[in-house]
């Protein structure tokens, strides 16, 4: 009896190759995200060590405005959710929905970063900049590094929105959008800890 061997067509082989390449690149990006978590961990450790060294300056409880920070948090959280909705529409290959959800994510993220820069601006105007004390140096470094990541994410998002609207959902673009979504969710995860450790525990004088 003749053995039955399924010979995959050239087209399906090529597709499988493409898929495996995509998966490897997404995995590589995931590894980058994990190392970025380690970077943030070292900044959190610095903050935890220095947060009581106020050097006769203000402590967290005096300078943090919790309702304002809650507003920032909700903006970033909602943008993470709308980024998730964009990922869903990516799966259904619906170009119009992908673009509109990413534009929504972009606007919410922009709102977050504008609020944060305004907060920094007010602190510097009140002579409570990073030069004031060890606590403020650690605070600006930690929250500023997160903000810098958000700015990079926003630039990346703007570029990707333009590319999708010009060339549509090609293989490369879909892969990059998936990476962007991972990056954006990761920024929201880091913010949970900034909100809790810096702001909420700071207000409790820990």
């Amino acid at each position: 009896m003749e053995p039955i061997i399924a010979i995959p067509s050239a087209k399906s082989l090529k597709r499988q190759e493409k898929e495996e390449k995509n998966n490897k690149m997404l995995f590589g990006f995931w590894v980058y995200i994990m190392t970025d978590c380690v970077l943030f961990a070292s900044l959190f450790a610095t903050y935890a060590v220095l947060h009581n060294n106020v050097y006769n300056g203000p402590g967290g409880a005096q300078i943090f405005k919790l309702p304002y920070v809650l507003g920032e948090t909700l903006l970033l959280l909602t943008s993470s959710f709308s980024c998730g909705l964009a990922t869903i529409s990516l799966q259904n290959r619906s170009k119009r929905k992908v673009i509109s959800y990413f534009i929504l994510t972009f606007i919410l993220g922009l709102g977050f970063i504008v609020m944060e820069l305004n907060e920094f601006h007010n602190l510097v105007l009140a002579h409570e900049s990073w030069r004031r004390s060890g606590f403020l140096s650690a605070y600006f470094t930690l929250v500023g590094t997160h903000g810098l990541h958000v700015i990079v994410g926003l630039i990346w998002m703007a570029v990707m929105i333009t590319r999708v609207s010009i060339s549509g959902l090609t293989n490369n673009i879909v892969r990059r959008l998936k990476m962007l979504a991972i990056f954006w969710h990761f920024l929201d995860v880091i913010w949970i800890f900034i909100f809790t450790i810096v702001y909420l525990l700071g207000a409790l004088h820990l």
Partner: peptide, 15 residues
Amino acid sequence: LTINHDENKLKLSSY
């Protein structure tokens, strides 16, 4: 090294 996103469909409910 197979990390397949498309095999496990993402669900709206999880988001």
